[in-house]
Design a protein around this nucleic acid. Structure first.
Length: 418
RNA sequence: GGAGAGGUGGCUGAGUGGCUGAAAGCACAGGUUUGCUAAACCUGCGUAGGGGAAACUCUACCGGGGGUUCGAAUCCCCCCCUCUCCGCCA
């Protein structure tokens, strides 16, 4: 949610952000509505003051009662109009995207993202590489057929050593994050619409969510929703900040409108799994912690031995709630390209304002905290492991850091292939 | 699923029609006392919005919504949530 004061005092900031994002919101119309609202508020409050004053006289002066009755009738009409205006302004404000960091690149889609750095050595193979779908079938560790049979196309099974690999990776990532000061969570996998609204998923990504029939609940699209919502309507002690939380959860997304986009294998699916990093911090520190989360993402990939590059995400590829975003794209030998595995967004006060998450310092100063939302690892990282560490016979070498958790160092190819 | 209890400020908790934006305690902030810590005592202390240079003042808020009334935390209706007990169950 944009601070309405910015709208009143420096609307050009918001216009500029909307212009760069290609958002056609009519800012002047909102300002007009707000102006009308504020004028009416003054009127209504003056009338209420009169009403209250007269009411106090009523006990001793029965004549005042008639006056108050008249006044109340006028007042209720104005109050109805006021309510209407308030709702309109609020609805329009809900749709406004966040401001933009000045350095965010222009552009309409991911082709305009700017590579910041490249790490790791891209593996070379002396044989024809397989993609994860092929490997998954060959090794009997990914089953999309039965995922579709049991649930729907877009759902899948990890099986055997594939499942063990994922469990190991997700557990390891959480251990690494707790070493870096994160508190681990397991969260609800459903959240009410208010929580989704507060985190900015509604109204912007309404078509991406799975609602639960007959309930005011949706399956979570990410544990960001439940972790950020955790502190809704709370005032946090400034000297306890930052709060760093991580969680493992399934993530459910309808992916409506993205059919055909790199749909082979399990790269884009209706349910994936993720370890998430969330930080609540003071506004002046959000850039620092935004970078901190990026360091964590990179550290994890480095430890796994996966080559990647970091991109500065352009306006067109960034969601409305984002102020600045870095994506990490890992190398996928099967695709022969870098593809997104993690993303890291500084949401500034966009979520905290909607959710009412504030801080208070020793001097009694209050404000809205900033939130950072960043991926740590997802199934896609496991896919990158399969594709990058495959051997000629289709077997896959497990990264060393995961071996204490998998209990094996290789996913063997079946006998007939050898 | 059945039965009961309850939702008041950062927390605990009074409060059944106007003097209650809300007692008291805790916590917190400032001060006095003190060799240090502790304790004691005094003072202050809800949130949001509007007006004002300020003092101050106005409006709203006691789970949410509606109603009765000149006036509601308090009375009525609907909804939501939490807790306890019973049943069922991972």
């Amino acid at each position: 949610m944009i601070d309405i004061k910015i709208l009143r005092e420096t609307p050009e900031l918001i216009k500029e952000s909307c212009r760069r994002r290609g958002d056609a919101a009519d800012i002047d119309a909102i300002i007009e509505l707000d102006k009308e609202y504020r004028e009416l508020v003054q009127q209504v409050e003056a009338m209420r003051a009169d009403r209250n004053r007269l009411s106090k006289e009523c006990r001793d002066n029965p004549e005042a009662r008639e006056q108050v009755k008249d006044l109340k009738e006028q007042l209720s009409q104005q109050e109805a109009r006021l309510q209407e205006l308030e709702t309109q302004v609020h609805d329009k404000l809900s749709w406004l995207p966040n401001l933009l960091h000045p350095a965010v690149p222009d552009g309409n889609d991911d082709t305009s993202n700017i590579e910041i750095r490249k790490e790791g050595v891209i593996p070379e193979f002396s044989f024809k590489v397989k993609d994860h779908q092929e490997l998954g079938e060959l090794l009997d560790i990914i089953d999309t057929q039965r995922g579709a049979k049991v649930a729907q196309s877009g759902f899948y099974y990890w099986k055997g050593k594939g499942a063990q690999l994922c469990n190991a990776m997700f557990f390891w990532a959480q251990m690494e994050l707790t070493k870096r000061g994160f508190t681990s969570f397991m969260t609800p996998c459903a959240a009410k619409s208010q929580t989704l609204y507060g985190t900015g998923y509604l109204p912007f990504f309404a078509d991406q969510t799975y609602p639960i029939a007959n309930e005011d609940l949706c399956l979570i699209g990410t544990s960001e929703q439940t972790l950020v919502g955790y502190h809704a309507d709370e005032i946090l002690e400034a000297d306890k900040l930052p709060l760093s939380y991580c969680a493992f959860s399934p993530c459910f997304r309808t992916e409506s409108g993205s059919y055909g986009k790199a749909s082979r294998g399990i790269f884009r699916v209706h349910q994936f799994h993720k370890v998430e990093q969330i930080i609540f911090c003071l506004p002046e520190e959000s850039e620092k912690y935004h970078k901190f989360c990026l360091e964590n993402e990179e550290y994890l990939l480095q430890q796994l031995g996966i080559p990647y590059h970091v991109v500065d995400v352009c306006v067109g590829d960034m969601g409305a709630p984002g102020y600045r975003k870095y994506d990490v794209e890992a190398w996928f030998a099967g695709f022969g390209a870098y593809r997104e595995v993690t993303s890291n967004t500084n949401l500034t006060d966009f979520q905290s304002r909607r959710l009412g998450i504030r801080y208070k310092d020793k001097d009694g100063n209050r404000g809205y905290v900033h939130t950072i939302s960043a991926t740590a690892v997802t199934d896609r990282v496991a896919i990158a492991i399969l594709e990058n560490f495959q051997q000629e016979d289709g077997s896959v070498i497990i990264p060393e850091v995961l071996r204490p958790f998998t209990g094996f160092d290789k996913i063997e190819a079946p006998e007939q292939v050898k």
